[in-house]
Design a protein around this nucleic acid. Structure first.
Length: 136
DNA sequence: GCCAACGTTGGC
DNA sequence: GCCAACGTTGGC
């Protein structure tokens, strides 16, 4: 099983909406590196849900419900894909960007190294470290 | 509001 | 193929 992190501006699509809808197709990704990551996702992979811009915190855990399929919001024949995500559980406490940056276990976190990428891989030990911060 | 990082576009 | 111009993202 692999681990990932996806970003969303809460004003555009929030964790609360995601839970309310009991999951969604993760559409709208228009970056090749992010798309490549989407293509690597498999059902059961766990995904950290990060609120960018206004909140800057990991707020929940999602899981991949279905592998990548053509993004219905993109032109037919385009290279863009979407995966189905569904909520697993909110974090007991959000983990802020500042907390992530302050933790030595997360010094290699892709989110911190490539802040603009919206779909990022997370190492298992990094995933665990984030969960530990969420329950501290 | 500003700016750094970075991707894309288009002229040459 | 290079690079300047430009647009977008996201942190501060």
């Amino acid at each position: 099983m692999k681990h990932w992190l996806v970003k969303s501006e809460p004003e555009a699509y929030s964790w609360a909406t995601f839970v309310q809808e009991d999951g969604t197709a993760w559409t709208g990704v228009r970056n090749y590196q992010a798309r490549n990551n989407l293509n690597l996702m498999e059902p059961g992979d766990l995904v950290l849900f990060y609120h960018s811009v206004s909140e800057k915190a990991v707020v929940g855990i999602a899981e991949v419900a279905a592998t990548a399929t053509p993004d219905a919001t993109a032109e037919v024949g385009s290279p863009w894909v979407a995966v189905a995500l569904r909520p697993v559980q909110p974090l007991p406490q959000p983990v802020s960007l500042a907390q992530l940056k302050a933790d030595v276990r997360l010094s290699e976190l892709a989110l911190l190294r490539q802040s603009r990428l919206s779909v990022l891989p997370v190492r298992p030990e990094e995933f665990d470290a984030v969960l530990a911060l969420a329950t501290k």
